[in-house]
Amino acid sequence: MAPLVDTRPARSRLRRGVSVRDAGPPIALLVIVLILSLLSPQFRTMGNALNILDAAAVLAVVTCGTTFVLLLGSIDLSAAGVMGASSLVVAVLVENSRNNLDLGTLGILIAVVLAAALGCVSGLLVVLLKVPSFMTTLGVSAIGLGVATLVFDGVQPGVVDPSLRSWATGRLLGLTYLTWIAVVCVLLAWFVQRYTRLGRYAMAIGGAEEVLALSGVRVGPYKVAVFTMAGAFYGLGAVMVTSQLGSGLVQSGASYTFASITAAVVGGTLLVGGRGGVLHSTVGVLLLTVLTNGLVLIGVSPYVQGGVQGLIVVVAVAVAAAPLRHRNQVVK
């Protein structure tokens, strides 16, 4: 995002504000790590650090998708449904306990393509029918859950395919393959955001859509592409969850809709669009995962986690919106 702001010297005050915002989440991450290390001896071990990275893998991939949608200034509530559908589809297409199919990598690809198609539907509905994204994605989420329930059909498909199972169990340099996939995804998403037209336009659409449209850019296709790409990330996330769980579950993505939005917002990817990015969101993912891990080790009930996330997201949005309070009288 730097060149969008940096090129004009008159913006120096703004730039300082942006840099404080950029530095906030990493500092918060460090502080939380320090505090938890002091409170819990189990937390400050190398093994636990690796655990945290492994636990953050799926959320990091899902959040890559959410981040691009948030950069547009839209929102995506469809992760739960898209992941449910994708998880079931991959579970019945690779070698499994329910049927004789054994498509291997092709099965994984089909699941990701299905997820991308669902994302594409959300995008098309937003662009063509002008339905606000929170409504279209809520609808698409329901459709995805329906598809998942149809495929589930009362019998849980267990994953037998050894290569998919090894995603969650195989290790390289102490980290599971899932974590390495997540690292690749984050780097890829960062590359798209930083160096491709799609990423630059996504940022610009979130910043000032009217200006971009008046400049002669056809905004619609880029929006659809962003939603499609987000869907593909959810699909990959779902395949990763399925590998972790060892079977396809309708609810496998249930917690990720909210967790990914929370992570992105906490990391500094604002809901108003045009601010933040993949690396910001990834810091948010680590922050959230460290917090979850630390709270469990301190002995806080896992049921409290959702509540903590709920509070965090509201506080983070409020803090981000605070400087604009007097400008934005109308908030829907």
């Binding site: 409290v304 959702g306 509540g307 709920g310 509070l311 997201v313 509201v314 409020a318 919106a321 934005n328």
Partner: peptide, 30 residues
């Protein structure tokens, strides 16, 4: 929270959804 903190209502209530679910799970023992 929506009015005074200028947060879009769907995000406040999405946060509320998560918070209320979590309170319900804790006080009922799931």
């Amino acid at each position: 929270a929506h009015v005074f903190l200028r947060i879009p209502s769907f995000i406040v209530t999405l946060g509320g959804m998560s918070l209320f679910s979590s309170i319900a799970l804790v006080i009922s023992g799931a």
